[in-house]
Design a binder for these strands. Structure first.
Lengths: 186, 186
DNA sequence: GTCTATAGCTTGATAGAC
DNA sequence: GTCTATCAAGCTATAGAC
């Protein structure tokens, strides 16, 4: 087994960025390969399932990253508002202040396969659950907590679309700053 | 000049639906042609600029439709809240209760060209201006009116992404119902 | 594990018959 | 205006040398 030039971690990270920038169809395997510094054939050796497996790995990695950063911030100590503010900072980092889009958007358009869409939907539900939990923690009734959590994700996703349209990440940054109020003020 | 089998109106309408369902990359010229009932070569006769011209026509048509329906509703008589409620009904119709996506989203991802993105941005700005105007009409200060208008579009776009992810248009419908409050309550 | 080379298909777009 | 036929380029994916 010859040693890899680039770690699996690195490969998936580069692929993830390309998928988020170009969408499922726009990110050709050649483009994904170029992003990693490998040739297309080498990518197929590592991810024999082809483009679909690549997208699935990206979704899985995204879930892990959200878990280890955003959701982790929501589980720490401090007031709910403080925790959400910490999570919001992580979100700005993950979306590079609104200049990188979301897999919920980019991987559900075009020719993406059913398993990819199912995985994306799972990521959304995990995210919704976490926002729901922290909102409920403040004493909100479950129905209201759920509604706020969904609205929070709606605003983040919508702001990312807008930031793409205008070429300016400010709308996204502003939404993240409003997040503590949205999720914790009854 | 042999008579056309399908009107220009109809051609653009069918193409628009295909672009909104599949995104810029996902909608191949063959797919667009099939949607209209023509062969690809016939489409090129009508729109010699190819896929780019097709997308530009779709954006222009979308602007006209918004103007003649949503914005027109905002200019009629009645309270601002009533007018927004009427516009919201038109939006539910245009987005088929959250089962058809928005060109702001679908035509700014992937390989769409610069002129297409510029046109989409123009559509967004027209939309923002109209929402801004009706909000300001209620007595809101200009800065607040602008902020509410932007948030309204953010929520509509985000809800459409979510509706696509979950395969359920309810989030979108709910946002349209909240629209009068968002745009007219100070 | 990585590469070059290539198969087989689809893409956007055009030529020319009717 | 619409079609069939076709092109070059790009696509996903694989075979086989190193």
């Amino acid at each position: 087994m010859r040693p890899s030039r680039v770690s699996e971690e690195e490969v998936v990270a580069k692929i993830a960025e390309a998928f988020r920038r170009h969408g499922y169809d726009g990110a050709s395997v050649r483009l994904l390969a170029k992003a990693t510094g490998l040739e297309a054939a080498s990518l197929y050796t590592r991810l024999p399932g082809g483009k679909e497996e690549m997208a699935l790995k990206v979704v899985a990695r995204t879930c892990e990253w959200l878990q280890a950063n955003v959701f982790e911030a929501l589980h720490g100590s401090g007031t709910a508002a403080k925790k959400v503010a910490r999570a919001a900072r992580r979100l700005r980092e993950f979306y590079q202040n609104g200049t990188l889009w979301c897999v919920l958007d980019t991987l559900t358009l075009g020719e993406s396969t059913v398993p990819v869409r199912v995985a994306v939907r799972g990521a959304y539900e995990a995210w919704l659950g976490e926002f729901c939990r922290v909102a409920h923690e403040t004493g909100m009734p479950p129905a209201q907590a759920r509604e706020r959590a969904q609205r929070a994700i709606i605003e983040l996703e919508g702001a990312l679309v807008l930031s793409r349209v205008t070429g300016d990440g400010k709308p996204f940054v502003r939404v993240t700053q409003r997040l503590p109020e949205l999720l914790t003020k009854p």
